[in-house]
Write a protein that binds this DNA or RNA. Structure first.
Lengths: 179, 179, 179, 179
DNA sequence: GATGAATGAGAATTCATTCAT
DNA sequence: TATGAATGAATTCTCATTCAT
């Protein structure tokens, strides 16, 4: 028996859960799958997370955090007077170009929130924080909310439809919205 | 043994699947649940739909059809020169006011499409048709796509966040986008 | 509906059953698998073969027939005074060199005979006929029976163990047995 | 809920599997059948043996072991200079006289090995060990292999054909082979 | 605290067979 | 006669959770 004392095992379990969900979807989250991924005994996952929902919420929280941290970094990196439309287009382009499973996970999070009360606050907070970050660059909060909605909708459509990214078109739309 | 001969049994199964999915989410779709809802033996659902994916796709297709038919009806009902922004705001308000499970299902459909290849074409076609319908009232296709994205994003945010519907704000955003 | 009148459909079903069993083993024999392989409706297989056992026996009979026909052809092709040991070695070598699924099927037939009364007579007749064919080249019936047993045992061992064929060794054993 | 704590439950499951397979054939091996025979809940068999193949292999291994132990005991019991032919005839006679299900199982094992990769090594090792045991009484390894094949073939034929055991004939054949 | 074992429910599928047409 | 539909039992396997150690 290695690893009897293992202080950040709980953390490692959450990370494993994030990987499981990222790779195979929310529906694939199970104590067993996570235990295998984290290389810990099954009993360990149920010990640290009494129900599967507890683990789900933690995984979802961490996923949202990573996404939000990325967004915040993007925002901090923008030059002071940079034209927002161009920056946003870059953000979208980058999100679509990279590993899509992170992005897909974001929408699974939203979908999960619709049915599972435990997930809902996490998703709501995520939307709120996204809006707050965008709000640092928009004239007012209403514009930030609209921009956030447009971004969410655009990314979702691109993911679903598989259409190639239409840079100019997206730029135009963003520009109209936050002008 | 009552119902030995039963035409349109297949249809009743699909309808039951739509009800199951609408009431308890895509994750609750199972041969068992559908059989119980349709009041047919378990074997009957697997006879008509060899795999669960077949049934899922059929249910999802029908759900999307209902949503799209509603949208088309809304569009047909608009007066010729009606201001689009107001009409769109009404549409959103109505969607949020009524039974939300139909709407929630729409987003589960999108999320499912991200992971299940079989669902993807259905979701893609749905986005396309929504855009086409909106396109009858926008200056060009690009505006329709942007509007569609905004609508999808807005509805998603309202569903997730539970914020009260801000009529003026939404109107403003739509107006900016489609002039 | 094509093919309403189809006189040798029964035959085609049996052939399909042989293919199914040859490719995936006796355990994979099912009305459905055969119907798919023969490209006939499911009801057609149950119409021509009331129970699965009927179909199994027919398939097994045909398999044995093919094997026995091959054996008989080999025997007829032997020169009058040919040394038996060499001829037998060639037979074994050829059986092991070609498509092994035919051979494997032969042993599944035997195994099936041990548990299924319906198959037993077919297997027994197969052994008997093999012995009769070999008997045309051995001094007496006892030698034929022993040779048949040795062949069956050798082929089985080679199939199971995967050892390379040891020509000289087999020749020696056969020679001792049938002089 | 009686038996909540039950060490060597795993062992009892394997034993039950051996009984099921012995009584009704390899084809009758199922989680359900074994669970019933071992008087444990169904979930218990799947807990200890994740797939049916795992259980099959274990059962088959144990069956082969018993057979090989019997063979080894027979060999150890032979007087030093005993004539091999007579001893072998006794062995065959005994095998055919007793409970045949053990013997039948042996051939099902071979047949299973032909189709299931997981079983193959067990069957191959069984052949090898049989040959090794016989080799202690034969002039060389080649003779042992031939004798083993003859034995396997003979027993198979007797099982399949139901012919009465012909003592003198078998003795003659063995004598020719191992001199 | 921590964990291997246990369990019962439920999952998707496959299937032989029967039956109405 | 031929066949699509229907059915109910059985298949393997996964799982969240509980419990004894």
């Amino acid at each position: 028996m290695p690893r009897r004392y293992d202080p950040d095992r709980r953390d490692r379990i959450v990370e494993a859960a994030v990987r499981v969900v990222g790779a195979r979807g929310l529906g694939a989250l199970s104590h067993r799958a996570v235990a295998a991924e984290a290389d810990v005994p099954l009993g360990s996952t149920t010990y640290h997370f009494a129900t599967l929902d507890d683990l789900l919420v933690e995984a979802v929280r961490r996923t949202a955090r990573e996404w939000l941290d990325g967004l915040a970094a993007w925002e901090r990196g923008l030059p002071a007077g940079a034209p927002l439309a161009d920056a946003v287009v870059d953000l979208v382009a980058e999100a679509l170009a990279g590993d899509r499973s992170r992005l897909e996970l974001e929408y699974e999070l939203y979908a999960a929130a619709l049915r599972r009360p435990a997930v809902r606050p996490v998703a709501a907070a995520c939307v709120e924080e996204m809006t707050a970050v965008l709000g640092r660059r928009t004239p007012d909060a209403a514009a930030a909310r609209a921009l956030c909605a447009l971004l969410d909708g655009l990314l979702l459509q691109y993911l679903v439809s598989g259409r190639p990214f239409a840079r100019a078109e997206v730029r135009e739309a963003v520009a109209r919205l936050v002008g």
